[in-house]
Design a binder for these strands. Structure first.
Lengths: 211, 211
DNA sequence: TGTACATCAGTGAACGCGCGTTCACTGATGTAC
DNA sequence: TGTACATCAGTGAACGCGCGTTCACTGATGTAC
Protein backbone atom coordinates (compact mmCIF):
# COMPACT_ATOMS: atom_id res chain seq x y z
CA UNK A 1 0.00 0.00 0.00
CA UNK A 2 1.97 3.02 -1.21
CA UNK A 3 -0.64 5.55 -0.03
CA UNK A 4 -3.82 5.03 1.96
CA UNK A 5 -6.79 5.48 -0.31
CA UNK A 6 -10.06 6.85 0.93
CA UNK A 7 -12.65 4.29 2.02
CA UNK A 8 -14.64 4.91 -1.12
CA UNK A 9 -11.64 4.37 -3.45
CA UNK A 10 -10.58 1.27 -1.54
CA UNK A 11 -14.05 -0.26 -1.85
CA UNK A 12 -14.14 0.55 -5.55
CA UNK A 13 -10.80 -1.16 -6.08
CA UNK A 14 -12.06 -4.18 -4.19
CA UNK A 15 -15.11 -4.51 -6.42
CA UNK A 16 -12.95 -4.07 -9.51
CA UNK A 17 -10.66 -6.86 -8.35
CA UNK A 18 -13.67 -9.08 -7.64
CA UNK A 19 -14.96 -8.48 -11.19
CA UNK A 20 -11.58 -9.32 -12.71
CA UNK A 21 -11.20 -12.45 -10.57
CA UNK A 22 -14.72 -13.66 -11.29
CA UNK A 23 -14.22 -13.12 -15.01
CA UNK A 24 -10.91 -14.99 -14.96
CA UNK A 25 -12.56 -17.93 -13.24
CA UNK A 26 -15.51 -17.99 -15.63
CA UNK A 27 -13.06 -17.90 -18.54
CA UNK A 28 -11.60 -21.25 -17.59
CA UNK A 29 -14.56 -22.88 -19.28
CA UNK A 30 -15.46 -20.45 -22.02
CA UNK A 31 -13.95 -17.71 -24.12
CA UNK A 32 -14.14 -13.96 -23.74
CA UNK A 33 -16.45 -13.44 -26.70
CA UNK A 34 -19.16 -15.50 -25.00
CA UNK A 35 -18.67 -14.12 -21.49
CA UNK A 36 -21.65 -12.10 -20.29
CA UNK A 37 -21.61 -8.93 -18.23
CA UNK A 38 -24.49 -10.23 -16.09
CA UNK A 39 -22.67 -13.51 -15.61
CA UNK A 40 -19.68 -11.69 -14.12
CA UNK A 41 -21.68 -9.40 -11.83
CA UNK A 42 -23.82 -12.34 -10.67
CA UNK A 43 -20.65 -14.24 -9.68
CA UNK A 44 -19.44 -11.24 -7.69
CA UNK A 45 -22.81 -10.49 -6.12
CA UNK A 46 -23.35 -6.95 -7.36
CA UNK A 47 -26.02 -5.48 -9.62
CA UNK A 48 -25.37 -5.74 -13.40
CA UNK A 49 -25.26 -1.96 -13.63
CA UNK A 50 -22.35 -1.77 -11.18
CA UNK A 51 -20.18 -3.22 -13.96
CA UNK A 52 -20.27 0.10 -15.82
CA UNK A 53 -18.60 1.89 -12.90
CA UNK A 54 -15.45 -0.11 -13.72
CA UNK A 55 -15.44 -1.12 -17.38
CA UNK A 56 -17.15 0.13 -20.49
CA UNK A 57 -17.66 -3.39 -21.80
CA UNK A 58 -16.52 -6.99 -21.49
CA UNK A 59 -13.94 -6.24 -24.18
CA UNK A 60 -12.56 -3.46 -21.98
CA UNK A 61 -12.35 -5.86 -19.03
CA UNK A 62 -10.55 -8.32 -21.33
CA UNK A 63 -7.85 -5.78 -22.12
CA UNK A 64 -7.38 -5.19 -18.37
CA UNK A 65 -6.97 -8.95 -17.93
CA UNK A 66 -4.27 -9.01 -20.60
CA UNK A 67 -2.24 -6.46 -18.67
CA UNK A 68 -2.69 -8.47 -15.51
CA UNK A 69 -1.93 -11.88 -17.02
CA UNK A 70 1.12 -10.75 -18.96
CA UNK A 71 2.21 -8.61 -16.04
CA UNK A 72 2.50 -11.75 -13.96
CA UNK A 73 4.54 -13.37 -16.74
CA UNK A 74 7.01 -10.54 -17.07
CA UNK A 75 9.09 -11.14 -13.91
CA UNK A 76 9.37 -14.81 -14.86
CA UNK A 77 10.86 -13.88 -18.22
CA UNK A 78 13.28 -11.50 -16.56
CA UNK A 79 14.35 -14.27 -14.22
CA UNK A 80 14.82 -16.80 -17.01
CA UNK A 81 16.94 -14.51 -19.18
CA UNK A 82 19.09 -13.47 -16.24
CA UNK A 83 19.72 -17.04 -15.04
CA UNK A 84 23.38 -18.00 -15.24
CA UNK A 85 25.02 -21.38 -15.61
CA UNK A 86 25.72 -23.81 -18.43
CA UNK A 87 23.16 -24.70 -21.09
CA UNK A 88 21.62 -27.71 -19.39
CA UNK A 89 21.28 -25.94 -16.07
CA UNK A 90 19.62 -22.93 -17.63
CA UNK A 91 17.23 -25.12 -19.60
CA UNK A 92 16.14 -27.11 -16.54
CA UNK A 93 15.74 -23.93 -14.54
CA UNK A 94 13.69 -22.26 -17.26
CA UNK A 95 11.28 -25.18 -17.55
CA UNK A 96 10.95 -25.31 -13.76
CA UNK A 97 10.13 -21.62 -13.70
CA UNK A 98 7.51 -22.07 -16.39
CA UNK A 99 5.94 -25.02 -14.54
CA UNK A 100 5.93 -23.00 -11.32
CA UNK A 101 4.28 -20.07 -13.05
CA UNK A 102 1.51 -22.29 -14.39
CA UNK A 103 0.95 -23.68 -10.88
CA UNK A 104 0.80 -20.17 -9.45
CA UNK A 105 -1.34 -18.55 -12.15
CA UNK A 106 -3.17 -21.21 -14.17
CA UNK A 107 -6.05 -18.88 -15.06
CA UNK A 108 -3.64 -16.26 -16.42
CA UNK A 109 -1.94 -18.81 -18.64
CA UNK A 110 -5.23 -20.21 -19.89
CA UNK A 111 -6.54 -16.74 -20.63
CA UNK A 112 -3.53 -15.79 -22.72
CA UNK A 113 -3.41 -19.10 -24.59
CA UNK A 114 -7.14 -18.87 -25.34
CA UNK A 115 -7.42 -15.21 -26.24
CA UNK A 116 -4.15 -14.88 -28.14
CA UNK A 117 -6.02 -16.13 -31.19
CA UNK A 118 -9.51 -15.54 -29.79
CA UNK A 119 -12.51 -13.74 -31.16
CA UNK A 120 -12.00 -10.30 -29.60
CA UNK A 121 -9.77 -8.10 -31.76
CA UNK A 122 -8.78 -5.53 -29.09
CA UNK A 123 -7.64 -8.32 -26.77
CA UNK A 124 -5.68 -10.08 -29.51
CA UNK A 125 -3.96 -6.79 -30.31
CA UNK A 126 -3.12 -6.14 -26.64
CA UNK A 127 -1.58 -9.62 -26.29
CA UNK A 128 0.34 -9.29 -29.55
CA UNK A 129 1.80 -5.93 -28.58
CA UNK A 130 2.81 -7.06 -25.11
CA UNK A 131 4.42 -10.26 -26.43
CA UNK A 132 6.35 -8.16 -28.95
CA UNK A 133 7.77 -6.16 -26.03
CA UNK A 134 8.75 -9.38 -24.30
CA UNK A 135 10.50 -10.54 -27.47
CA UNK A 136 12.44 -7.27 -27.64
CA UNK A 137 13.53 -7.77 -24.04
CA UNK A 138 14.60 -11.35 -24.67
CA UNK A 139 16.36 -10.22 -27.85
CA UNK A 140 18.37 -7.64 -25.93
CA UNK A 141 19.42 -10.27 -23.41
CA UNK A 142 20.40 -12.65 -26.20
CA UNK A 143 22.45 -9.94 -27.90
CA UNK A 144 24.61 -9.64 -24.80
CA UNK A 145 25.27 -13.38 -24.65
CA UNK A 146 28.68 -14.33 -26.10
CA UNK A 147 26.98 -17.20 -27.99
CA UNK A 148 25.28 -14.54 -30.11
CA UNK A 149 28.51 -12.97 -31.34
CA UNK A 150 28.33 -12.50 -35.09
CA UNK A 151 24.56 -12.90 -35.24
CA UNK A 152 22.51 -10.63 -37.50
CA UNK A 153 19.70 -8.50 -36.12
CA UNK A 154 16.94 -10.46 -37.83
CA UNK A 155 18.37 -13.75 -36.60
CA UNK A 156 18.31 -12.48 -33.01
CA UNK A 157 14.73 -11.29 -33.40
CA UNK A 158 13.75 -14.67 -34.79
CA UNK A 159 15.38 -16.49 -31.89
CA UNK A 160 13.80 -14.18 -29.30
CA UNK A 161 10.33 -14.72 -30.78
CA UNK A 162 10.97 -18.45 -30.89
CA UNK A 163 11.82 -18.48 -27.19
CA UNK A 164 8.74 -16.44 -26.27
CA UNK A 165 6.57 -18.79 -28.33
CA UNK A 166 8.15 -21.83 -26.72
CA UNK A 167 7.54 -20.39 -23.29
CA UNK A 168 3.86 -19.86 -23.97
CA UNK A 169 3.46 -23.21 -25.69
CA UNK A 170 5.14 -25.02 -22.83
CA UNK A 171 3.02 -23.17 -20.27
CA UNK A 172 -0.10 -24.17 -22.15
CA UNK A 173 0.98 -27.82 -22.16
CA UNK A 174 1.60 -27.77 -18.40
CA UNK A 175 -1.93 -26.45 -18.01
CA UNK A 176 -3.33 -29.60 -19.56
CA UNK A 177 -1.00 -31.88 -17.59
CA UNK A 178 -0.62 -30.26 -14.18
CA UNK A 179 0.41 -33.36 -12.22
CA UNK A 180 1.91 -36.83 -12.37
CA UNK A 181 3.38 -38.68 -15.32
CA UNK A 182 1.77 -36.38 -17.89
CA UNK A 183 3.49 -33.41 -16.27
CA UNK A 184 6.83 -35.23 -16.32
CA UNK A 185 6.37 -35.94 -20.01
CA UNK A 186 5.69 -32.27 -20.73
CA UNK A 187 8.74 -31.41 -18.67
CA UNK A 188 11.03 -33.77 -20.61
CA UNK A 189 9.65 -32.65 -23.97
CA UNK A 190 10.10 -28.98 -23.08
CA UNK A 191 13.69 -29.64 -22.04
CA UNK A 192 14.37 -31.46 -25.30
CA UNK A 193 12.90 -28.64 -27.34
CA UNK A 194 15.08 -26.07 -25.63
CA UNK A 195 18.05 -28.38 -26.07
CA UNK A 196 17.40 -28.61 -29.81
CA UNK A 197 17.09 -24.84 -30.09
CA UNK A 198 20.26 -24.45 -27.99
CA UNK A 199 22.10 -26.86 -30.29
CA UNK A 200 20.90 -24.92 -33.31
CA UNK A 201 22.11 -21.69 -31.69
CA UNK A 202 25.52 -23.16 -30.92
CA UNK A 203 26.10 -24.12 -34.56
CA UNK A 204 24.22 -21.29 -36.26
CA UNK A 205 27.33 -19.79 -37.79
CA UNK A 206 28.96 -23.09 -38.80
CA UNK A 207 27.67 -22.78 -42.35
CA UNK A 208 25.78 -25.73 -43.88
CA UNK A 209 22.06 -25.70 -43.01
CA UNK A 210 22.59 -22.62 -40.91
CA UNK A 211 24.47 -20.74 -43.67
CA UNK B 1 -19.48 -38.08 -57.33
CA UNK B 2 -18.76 -41.77 -56.73
CA UNK B 3 -22.45 -42.68 -56.78
CA UNK B 4 -25.42 -40.58 -57.75
CA UNK B 5 -27.37 -39.70 -54.64
CA UNK B 6 -31.10 -39.29 -54.71
CA UNK B 7 -32.38 -35.76 -55.18
CA UNK B 8 -33.32 -35.64 -51.50
CA UNK B 9 -29.89 -36.68 -50.26
CA UNK B 10 -28.16 -34.28 -52.65
CA UNK B 11 -30.24 -31.36 -51.41
CA UNK B 12 -29.54 -32.32 -47.81
CA UNK B 13 -25.80 -32.38 -48.46
CA UNK B 14 -26.04 -28.99 -50.11
CA UNK B 15 -27.75 -27.46 -47.07
CA UNK B 16 -25.20 -29.08 -44.76
CA UNK B 17 -22.36 -27.58 -46.79
CA UNK B 18 -24.05 -24.19 -46.71
CA UNK B 19 -24.31 -24.39 -42.90
CA UNK B 20 -20.63 -25.33 -42.55
CA UNK B 21 -19.53 -22.59 -44.96
CA UNK B 22 -21.66 -19.95 -43.27
CA UNK B 23 -20.36 -20.94 -39.85
CA UNK B 24 -16.75 -20.82 -41.05
CA UNK B 25 -17.31 -17.33 -42.43
CA UNK B 26 -18.99 -16.09 -39.24
CA UNK B 27 -16.10 -17.54 -37.24
CA UNK B 28 -13.63 -15.19 -38.86
CA UNK B 29 -14.81 -12.50 -36.47
CA UNK B 30 -15.85 -14.45 -33.38
CA UNK B 31 -15.22 -17.74 -31.65
CA UNK B 32 -17.24 -20.91 -31.66
CA UNK B 33 -18.48 -20.53 -28.12
CA UNK B 34 -20.32 -17.33 -29.05
CA UNK B 35 -21.61 -18.52 -32.43
CA UNK B 36 -25.40 -18.82 -32.50
CA UNK B 37 -27.47 -21.46 -34.23
CA UNK B 38 -29.91 -18.83 -35.47
CA UNK B 39 -27.02 -16.74 -36.74
CA UNK B 40 -25.84 -19.61 -38.92
CA UNK B 41 -29.26 -20.52 -40.30
CA UNK B 42 -30.03 -16.85 -40.96
CA UNK B 43 -26.83 -16.57 -43.02
CA UNK B 44 -27.83 -19.62 -45.05
CA UNK B 45 -31.45 -18.59 -45.45
CA UNK B 46 -33.17 -21.59 -43.84
CA UNK B 47 -35.38 -21.84 -40.77
CA UNK B 48 -33.55 -22.19 -37.42
CA UNK B 49 -35.12 -25.60 -36.92
CA UNK B 50 -33.55 -26.93 -40.13
CA UNK B 51 -30.23 -26.86 -38.28
CA UNK B 52 -31.27 -29.89 -36.23
CA UNK B 53 -31.60 -32.02 -39.37
CA UNK B 54 -27.80 -31.77 -39.72
CA UNK B 55 -26.21 -31.16 -36.32
CA UNK B 56 -27.28 -31.71 -32.75
CA UNK B 57 -25.66 -28.45 -31.62
CA UNK B 58 -23.13 -25.79 -32.54
CA UNK B 59 -20.51 -27.85 -30.73
CA UNK B 60 -21.32 -30.77 -33.01
CA UNK B 61 -20.93 -28.53 -36.07
CA UNK B 62 -17.60 -27.39 -34.62
CA UNK B 63 -16.30 -30.95 -34.51
CA UNK B 64 -17.33 -31.38 -38.15
CA UNK B 65 -15.38 -28.22 -39.00
CA UNK B 66 -12.29 -29.63 -37.29
CA UNK B 67 -12.39 -32.67 -39.55
CA UNK B 68 -12.78 -30.43 -42.56
CA UNK B 69 -10.11 -27.90 -41.62
CA UNK B 70 -7.50 -30.46 -40.62
CA UNK B 71 -8.49 -32.64 -43.55
CA UNK B 72 -7.41 -29.83 -45.85
CA UNK B 73 -4.12 -29.56 -43.98
CA UNK B 74 -3.27 -33.25 -44.20
CA UNK B 75 -2.23 -33.43 -47.87
CA UNK B 76 0.01 -30.41 -47.33
CA UNK B 77 1.83 -32.18 -44.54
CA UNK B 78 2.24 -35.28 -46.68
CA UNK B 79 3.69 -33.14 -49.45
CA UNK B 80 6.13 -31.36 -47.14
CA UNK B 81 7.48 -34.52 -45.55
CA UNK B 82 7.88 -36.23 -48.92
CA UNK B 83 9.70 -33.28 -50.52
CA UNK B 84 13.26 -34.14 -51.52
CA UNK B 85 16.31 -31.93 -51.94
CA UNK B 86 18.87 -30.34 -49.64
CA UNK B 87 17.96 -28.56 -46.40
CA UNK B 88 17.56 -25.05 -47.78
CA UNK B 89 15.44 -26.21 -50.71
CA UNK B 90 13.15 -28.22 -48.45
CA UNK B 91 12.77 -25.32 -46.04
CA UNK B 92 11.86 -22.82 -48.75
CA UNK B 93 9.44 -25.29 -50.31
CA UNK B 94 7.79 -26.02 -46.95
CA UNK B 95 7.22 -22.35 -46.17
CA UNK B 96 5.86 -21.78 -49.68
CA UNK B 97 3.44 -24.65 -49.20
CA UNK B 98 2.29 -23.24 -45.88
CA UNK B 99 1.79 -19.77 -47.37
CA UNK B 100 -0.12 -21.30 -50.27
CA UNK B 101 -2.33 -23.25 -47.91
CA UNK B 102 -3.20 -20.11 -45.96
CA UNK B 103 -4.08 -18.35 -49.23
CA UNK B 104 -6.29 -21.27 -50.27
CA UNK B 105 -7.99 -21.90 -46.92
CA UNK B 106 -7.67 -18.87 -44.65
CA UNK B 107 -10.87 -19.66 -42.76
CA UNK B 108 -9.67 -23.19 -42.00
CA UNK B 109 -6.38 -21.91 -40.61
CA UNK B 110 -8.09 -19.24 -38.53
CA UNK B 111 -10.58 -21.74 -37.16
CA UNK B 112 -7.87 -24.16 -36.02
CA UNK B 113 -5.67 -21.43 -34.53
CA UNK B 114 -8.63 -19.95 -32.67
CA UNK B 115 -10.30 -23.12 -31.44
CA UNK B 116 -7.15 -25.09 -30.61
CA UNK B 117 -7.19 -23.35 -27.23
CA UNK B 118 -10.78 -22.13 -27.47
CA UNK B 119 -13.70 -22.45 -25.10
CA UNK B 120 -15.34 -25.60 -26.49
CA UNK B 121 -13.87 -28.72 -24.95
CA UNK B 122 -15.05 -31.25 -27.58
CA UNK B 123 -13.53 -29.14 -30.34
CA UNK B 124 -10.23 -28.70 -28.49
CA UNK B 125 -10.09 -32.47 -28.00
CA UNK B 126 -10.82 -33.15 -31.67
CA UNK B 127 -8.03 -30.77 -32.75
CA UNK B 128 -5.58 -32.20 -30.22
CA UNK B 129 -6.24 -35.78 -31.32
CA UNK B 130 -5.93 -34.97 -35.01
CA UNK B 131 -2.70 -33.01 -34.50
CA UNK B 132 -1.30 -35.96 -32.54
CA UNK B 133 -1.95 -38.16 -35.58
CA UNK B 134 -0.15 -35.63 -37.78
CA UNK B 135 2.81 -35.68 -35.40
CA UNK B 136 2.94 -39.48 -35.58
CA UNK B 137 2.98 -39.26 -39.36
CA UNK B 138 5.73 -36.64 -39.36
CA UNK B 139 7.64 -38.72 -36.80
CA UNK B 140 7.53 -41.78 -39.03
CA UNK B 141 8.85 -39.76 -41.95
CA UNK B 142 11.64 -38.32 -39.78
CA UNK B 143 12.58 -41.80 -38.59
CA UNK B 144 13.29 -42.82 -42.17
CA UNK B 145 15.53 -39.84 -42.79
CA UNK B 146 19.27 -40.68 -42.55
CA UNK B 147 19.75 -37.51 -40.45
CA UNK B 148 17.76 -39.21 -37.71
CA UNK B 149 20.10 -42.22 -37.40
CA UNK B 150 20.86 -42.82 -33.73
CA UNK B 151 17.96 -40.71 -32.49
CA UNK B 152 15.89 -41.93 -29.55
CA UNK B 153 12.14 -42.41 -29.84
CA UNK B 154 11.29 -39.52 -27.52
CA UNK B 155 13.62 -37.19 -29.39
CA UNK B 156 11.90 -38.02 -32.67
CA UNK B 157 8.49 -37.44 -31.10
CA UNK B 158 9.67 -34.10 -29.75
CA UNK B 159 10.98 -33.03 -33.14
CA UNK B 160 7.82 -34.14 -34.93
CA UNK B 161 5.63 -32.16 -32.52
CA UNK B 162 7.92 -29.17 -32.89
CA UNK B 163 7.53 -29.27 -36.67
CA UNK B 164 3.73 -29.56 -36.44
CA UNK B 165 3.63 -26.63 -34.01
CA UNK B 166 5.87 -24.55 -36.25
CA UNK B 167 3.66 -25.28 -39.21
CA UNK B 168 0.54 -24.07 -37.40
CA UNK B 169 2.30 -21.09 -35.90
CA UNK B 170 3.66 -20.05 -39.27
CA UNK B 171 0.27 -20.51 -40.92
CA UNK B 172 -1.30 -18.31 -38.26
CA UNK B 173 1.30 -15.59 -38.85
CA UNK B 174 0.64 -15.63 -42.61
CA UNK B 175 -3.04 -15.12 -41.80
CA UNK B 176 -2.25 -11.80 -40.13
CA UNK B 177 0.14 -10.74 -42.88
CA UNK B 178 -1.34 -12.07 -46.13
CA UNK B 179 0.36 -9.66 -48.54
CA UNK B 180 3.26 -7.30 -49.13
CA UNK B 181 6.24 -6.58 -46.91
CA UNK B 182 4.64 -8.07 -43.80
CA UNK B 183 4.19 -11.35 -45.65
CA UNK B 184 7.82 -11.31 -46.77
CA UNK B 185 8.90 -10.76 -43.17
CA UNK B 186 6.84 -13.74 -42.00
CA UNK B 187 8.35 -15.75 -44.82
CA UNK B 188 11.92 -14.90 -43.85
CA UNK B 189 11.30 -15.50 -40.15
CA UNK B 190 9.69 -18.88 -40.85
CA UNK B 191 12.65 -19.87 -42.99
CA UNK B 192 15.08 -18.84 -40.24
CA UNK B 193 13.16 -20.81 -37.65
CA UNK B 194 13.26 -23.95 -39.74
CA UNK B 195 16.96 -23.33 -40.40
CA UNK B 196 17.65 -23.12 -36.67
CA UNK B 197 15.72 -26.33 -36.04
CA UNK B 198 17.53 -27.97 -38.96
CA UNK B 199 20.88 -26.88 -37.53
CA UNK B 200 19.91 -28.29 -34.14
CA UNK B 201 18.93 -31.55 -35.80
CA UNK B 202 22.19 -31.79 -37.71
CA UNK B 203 24.24 -31.47 -34.50
CA UNK B 204 21.87 -33.24 -32.09
CA UNK B 205 24.23 -36.14 -31.46
CA UNK B 206 27.42 -34.05 -31.27
CA UNK B 207 27.31 -34.03 -27.45
CA UNK B 208 27.53 -30.68 -25.64
CA UNK B 209 24.17 -28.92 -25.35
CA UNK B 210 22.51 -31.69 -27.27
CA UNK B 211 24.06 -34.45 -25.12
C1' DT C 1 -15.37 19.68 16.09
C1' DG C 2 -19.74 20.46 13.59
C1' DT C 3 -22.64 21.54 9.70
C1' DA C 4 -24.15 21.82 4.93
C1' DC C 5 -23.49 20.41 0.55
C1' DA C 6 -21.23 17.58 -3.34
C1' DT C 7 -19.72 13.33 -5.08
C1' DC C 8 -20.33 8.91 -6.82
C1' DA C 9 -20.32 3.45 -6.18
C1' DG C 10 -23.80 0.60 -6.23
C1' DT C 11 -29.21 -0.29 -6.73
C1' DG C 12 -33.39 -2.03 -8.84
C1' DA C 13 -37.04 -1.61 -12.12
C1' DA C 14 -37.88 -1.58 -16.78
C1' DC C 15 -37.12 -2.04 -21.82
C1' DG C 16 -36.83 -4.42 -26.16
C1' DC C 17 -34.41 -8.19 -28.28
C1' DG C 18 -32.52 -12.48 -29.89
C1' DC C 19 -31.64 -16.83 -28.16
C1' DG C 20 -32.30 -22.38 -28.25
C1' DT C 21 -35.74 -25.64 -28.37
C1' DT C 22 -40.59 -27.91 -28.91
C1' DC C 23 -44.07 -29.15 -31.88
C1' DA C 24 -47.32 -30.25 -35.38
C1' DC C 25 -47.11 -29.33 -40.20
C1' DT C 26 -46.22 -29.59 -45.46
C1' DG C 27 -45.07 -31.28 -49.62
C1' DA C 28 -41.48 -33.16 -52.54
C1' DT C 29 -39.02 -37.47 -53.00
C1' DG C 30 -38.68 -42.42 -52.49
C1' DT C 31 -40.55 -47.16 -52.59
C1' DA C 32 -43.58 -51.25 -53.12
C1' DC C 33 -46.53 -53.46 -56.01
C1' DT D 1 -46.24 -46.87 -66.45
C1' DG D 2 -49.42 -45.80 -62.62
C1' DT D 3 -51.07 -45.76 -57.98
C1' DA D 4 -50.95 -45.70 -52.96
C1' DC D 5 -48.37 -45.10 -49.11
C1' DA D 6 -43.97 -43.95 -46.37
C1' DT D 7 -40.23 -41.02 -45.52
C1' DC D 8 -38.14 -36.95 -44.06
C1' DA D 9 -35.83 -32.09 -45.06
C1' DG D 10 -37.37 -27.94 -44.16
C1' DT D 11 -41.29 -24.71 -42.08
C1' DG D 12 -43.31 -21.40 -38.92
C1' DA D 13 -45.52 -20.34 -34.65
C1' DA D 14 -44.80 -20.38 -29.97
C1' DC D 15 -42.43 -20.71 -25.44
C1' DG D 16 -39.72 -19.07 -21.60
C1' DC D 17 -35.33 -16.99 -20.63
C1' DG D 18 -31.29 -14.22 -20.02
C1' DC D 19 -29.11 -10.64 -22.29
C1' DG D 20 -27.07 -5.45 -22.44
C1' DT D 21 -28.37 -0.98 -21.52
C1' DT D 22 -31.22 3.21 -19.68
C1' DC D 23 -32.61 5.69 -15.89
C1' DA D 24 -33.74 7.90 -11.66
C1' DC D 25 -32.49 6.62 -7.10
C1' DT D 26 -29.99 6.02 -2.39
C1' DG D 27 -26.97 6.65 1.07
C1' DA D 28 -22.24 6.41 2.57
C1' DT D 29 -18.07 9.04 1.90
C1' DG D 30 -15.60 13.30 0.95
C1' DT D 31 -14.96 18.33 1.25
C1' DA D 32 -15.41 23.29 2.34
C1' DC D 33 -15.94 26.41 5.81
Amino acid sequence: MSHTLGVRQAQKQKTRRALLDAALELLEEQSLSSLGLREVTRAVGVAPTAFYRHFRSIEDLGVALVEEALGSLHPMIRTIVSTTGDGEERIARAVELIAGHVDAHPAHVRFIARERHGGVQAVRAAIRDQLALFAVEVGEALAEDPVSAGWGEEDLVMLAQLYVDQMLGTASLFLEAPVGEARERVFRMAVRRLRLIGTGRAHWLDGGVGG
